[in-house]
Write a protein that binds this DNA or RNA. Structure first.
Lengths: 234, 234
DNA sequence: CGGGTTGCGTTCATATTGGTCACCGGCGTG
DNA sequence: CACGCCGGTGACCAATATGAACGCAACCCG
């Protein structure tokens, strides 16, 4: 059983992540913390014996990266999966230098989450089953992270990962909600295709629909990128 | 230029590693230290601006792992490659939790050493060229590099080095991205073969896929050569 | 209050390309 | 010399974005 602590300031998101973890066999949630102070207490508790921390990098009191540093200073080698909405390469690099084993970008679907945690579990069992490494090649094999392609299989028929990625990016980078027609113009796509992908994003709760009234003609629905998916969608 | 510090207690080995580093283009040795105290001074020097430390884990005064911890405590996110004769899984795991990007077992050949450092260089240039990541997939791609090894060495079944070389060259010399059909026409290959090799190049991150939208019919995917570290050095 | 107008949502046929499978020719081997 | 393995090829079926046609939901005007 891999014992997980969740450090996340938004209670709704924390609850969602807890539910995610508990859906996976072999994982259990030991506790959660909403800020760094609580997290320190949680992790420091003698009977906790935590294996893995899902660490949000944006906490109210001190940054998650500082918390990670503090953990390392204390000599704790608990594994960390960084969870954040920050899409900053520098943050990624810093997190990795503190020994984060994975970097998850919010919001994520259960599939992506599952993939990362299962990869971690595999890594963990590999390490524990091998008592001592005998060669460089073996070390390399132990540390290798398997290429994941399970996410692609979860796509409904007729949709492409590359296109979905392009649509997601365009929507995310737009400050205002986008209609299918507007996104089509930006992304060199047809209106029909743009709508299909936007509908998919809305279906998996990565985007919300917002009808626009007030103009003549049939109302146009605009889509807004969601950074906090609702937890009722399990 | 990647600035390297070498921390190694045995002078002969330190010299050897220095020579190894200097055989590689794009790397330079800033200094070396024989124990943790010297290492701290070397790394702390304001004008050092060190990118990478080759860190021996068995030092006379304090352990290399403790030095790594001290570096992290100080907020330094300098990359570390752990170098040691210790074949202990626990040490590997601890080193990785302190954010080591590689783990090299002494003694190693120049080949192995080169492979690890070139992989690191690729990882680094990838990170610096991308200012902000846009998707989980991209993060995964960025982070996959440093820990996977010998990707180029082992060719999958059904591929030939000569053909791969020809395809690589053709793609590299083309200013615009090329589709499989286009490359087939240029290179005297069938579309099928061209596609197989282009897919391989994309899989090992030497090329990127870019679907072309806007025209009726199924979108055509074009491949673009990614210009990072020199492949002629292999 | 109801019919007309206006756009967008939705569906469907179509145009292309992707992916796969069974063959073919060549090279090494016994 | 026959055999077997292996990589490249042609042709097939499946996949996926496009454009146009149709229908619907909200505004507007009489």
């Amino acid at each position: 059983m891999i014992r997980v602590a969740i450090v996340e300031d938004d209670p709704l998101t924390a609850e969602l992540h807890t539910a995610y973890v508990e859906r996976l066999d072999g994982f259990e949630v030991i506790g959660s913390a909403g800020n760094a102070r609580e997290a320190r207490k949680l992790i420091g508790a003698a009977d906790a014996a935590i294996d893995l921390v899902l660490l949000d990098l944006t906490l109210p009191d001190i940054g998650g990266l500082d918390l990670a540093r503090a953990m390392r200073s204390a000599g704790l080698s608990i594994d960390i999966i960084a969870v954040t909405a920050v899409r900053d390469i520098a943050a990624v690099q810093t997190a990795m230098s503190f020994g984060a084993v994975q970097y998850l970008i919010k919001p994520f679907t259960f599939q992506v989450f599952q993939e990362k945690l299962l990869a971690y579990a595999a890594y963990r069992s590999r390490l524990s089953s091998a008592s001592s490494a005998t060669s460089q090649a073996e070390i390399d094999r132990l540390l290798a992270v398997p290429r994941s392609s399970s996410a692609a299989a979860a796509l409904p028929k007729g949709l492409t990962a590359a296109t979905l990625d392009a649509v997601s990016r365009a929507l995310r980078e737009s400050p205002a909600p986008l209609s299918a027609a507007e996104l089509a113009e930006r992304g060199d796509l047809s209106r029909v295709t743009a709508r299909r992908y936007l509908e998919h994003l809305a279906d998996i709760d990565l985007a919300s629909r917002e009808p626009r009234y007030g103009t003549p003609g049939r109302p146009e629905v605009a889509y807004r990128w969601l950074s906090h998916p609702s937890p009722d969608r399990l």
